[in-house]
Write a protein that binds this DNA or RNA. Structure first.
Lengths: 341, 341
DNA sequence: CTGAAAGCGCTAACAC
DNA sequence: GTGTTAGCGCTTTCAG
């Protein structure tokens, strides 16, 4: 015997109690305007008395939707972006969804097999929309989503011409502000440690650096002052060592991630240089680890939680209006000055 | 017109294709043994050809279940426990659920209102089970869960007599090992900074400290050597200052959280003491922030990701067997020695 | 072993 | 405006 009739009230019982038809109850629940105030009141009273809560499954089945959205997390990234970034994004999404009936599903993609499975998942319409974080340029998921006409919002974008909706931080502006800050403080030889060139976010931050260098009317962005990192701490160390060899006269460094800034700082200190008196250092705050590694490290902060909220909001809008209008939002960053450069 | 018939194959179509009845297809899908190999093969072939994926909503409606579990996150905690702890737990849960058809739902509880809403949520059977992290002694949720006979697993426990299933770390053993380590290294006057006494985890760590002190045949756990913190960095600073006033001769400190250890370290350094040469410091790694704050800080590490995996596994078992058998799992901790005390 | 049939609780036409 | 009526796609008896 199946647990038929679990004991909790159904829409039908509410209808009987309120002395109306099921359709009317359904209309009230779904906020249809085509209901008399009288009927509406009766239904609401009945719902309250019975403690009625609609059955999601039934609603999903009949309505051909799920009232759920998926947050896709590519596993390799969580370790790097990890920590605060990740949980801030989730917190933001959760906050935006709190007043909704939308459920947030977490989906990890670790292996190609899981990626394939997620494709099926989407095809099976098991969610109404998808939120994607840390998308790579060669990620096939966004295209799949588009092809399936599944509402989706990325955090960050694959390139300038991103077609899918996205919410991003103003990486160019943030980097420019950081580097301008260094020049304004009297630094002359400002180097940068970049992220992987195949990541759009890394290119943006490099662009910002270059713009600030040009604006400062400096000797121009000497390629000697640009070292490539990979957003990791170890990458930051390597890049910093290179820079020190190529240009021992460096008096400031803009690292395109806080992890790289932390690595660079270690190398600088080992080399006997004082930070920031000898070499000023500014990081881009991706993981907020900077907060803990060095409370005095000036950095460009992204509004991570707000990005999460915005992503959710944009997705909900996209789900609501069937039309596939793409939205592109770029949130400003903030330079948090903590040192005395 | 509603998007009736979304285009993707239904169980019925599979049945036709395989030349069997719907019931048989259902049995194959659900791995019932009462199906002939012949029929099974035909059905599997049809499923593959059609790319059939069962409709969750329909299945949930008919089967009176949801195939989803909720991870409940009390908001105030995420900031403290935050970061790696939080994401490690989630990662572990995700890993365990990967091969299942179970979905992971994230539920934040920020306000009393949301707490009430979650009660309804549970009563409405919108999930098959619940995972709770950072439970407080006075949290009403576990009792509600028990009363509703809803499968549930806690991370940590409210007290020695926890009735609900839980997965916890061996806090007593970890603390004991940490303090024993300090004595073994020749330290004589070992103080401790505790967590709030109304948290079971804090009491366990204090117990571990006391056991080690007694075992070392020390002068006994002088209450002068015990200062109360609240698991925060600021609390660690306050407690450390107190200790320094009461017993300037301290040569080691066991802090019951890494955040407090970080606070203590600051105070020690400001007071001119060298860490660890003058005063050795060991923290309990809750947020793994220690890793970033001071790579050389020895600490007791909890198997966070494994706790997540175990929680999920235990919950799935509890859901599978209708019987309400409680399981209590305590995972061992590990002393990660990073200094040269 | 397997087909047929009866719902699960809700939404969305469709009449009135 | 509102009741009635079909299903949504699946699981689970119940006969055979």
């Amino acid at each position: 015997m199946n647990g038929r009739h679990s004991g909790r009230p159904t829409l039908e019982e509410v209808a009987v109690r309120a002395g109306v038809g099921r359709g009317t109850v359904s209309r009230v629940i779904n906020g249809s305007p085509r209901v008399s105030d009288r009927a509406k009141a009766a239904v609401e009273a009945a719902i309250a008395e019975l403690g009625y809560v609609p059955n999601r499954a039934a609603r999903a089945l009949a309505g051909n939707r799920t009232d759920a959205i998926a947050l896709v997390i590519p596993e390799p990234e969580t370790r790097l972006f990890a920590e605060p970034y990740f949980s801030d994004i989730i917190r933001g999404i959760g906050a935006e969804l709190a007043d909704t009936d939308m459920q947030l599903l977490l989906t990890f993609i670790r292996t190609p097999k899981e990626r394939a499975r997620f494709g099926q998942y989407l095809a099976a319409h098991r969610v109404d929309g998808v939120l994607l974080v840390s998308v790579h340029e060669d990620d096939p998921l966004p295209d799949l989503l588009e092809q399936l006409e599944m509402p989706a919002v990325l955090n960050g974008r694959r390139s300038d011409l991103e077609s899918v909706s996205y919410v991003d931080a103003d990486n160019v502006g943030g980097a420019r502000a950081a580097v301008a800050h260094l020049f304004a403080r009297g630094r002359r030889t400002v180097a940068t440690i970049t992220g992987p060139p195949d990541m759009y976010v890394a290119r943006c931050r490099l662009d910002g650096y270059r713009q600030a260098v040009e604006a400062a009317g400096s000797a121009g962005a000497s390629s000697e002052l640009v070292a490539r990192g990979d957003f990791t701490e170890e990458g930051g160390r390597r890049a910093m060592r290179e820079l020190l060899v190529r240009r021992p006269d460096i008096d400031a460094v803009f690292a395109a991630s806080d992890l790289m800034a932390a690595g660079a700082r270690q190398v600088l200190r080992e080399s006997g240089r004082q930070v920031p008196s000898d070499v000023a250092l500014v990081g881009f705050e991706d993981s907020a680890i900077a907060r803990h590694m060095d409370p005095a490290l000036t950095s460009v902060r992204q509004p991570t939680e707000e990005m999460g909220r915005t992503m959710a909001r944009v997705l909900l809008e996209e789900i609501a209006e069937r039309a596939s209008v793409r939205r592109h939002v770029v949130l400003t960053t903030e330079l948090v000055q903590r040192d005395s450069v």
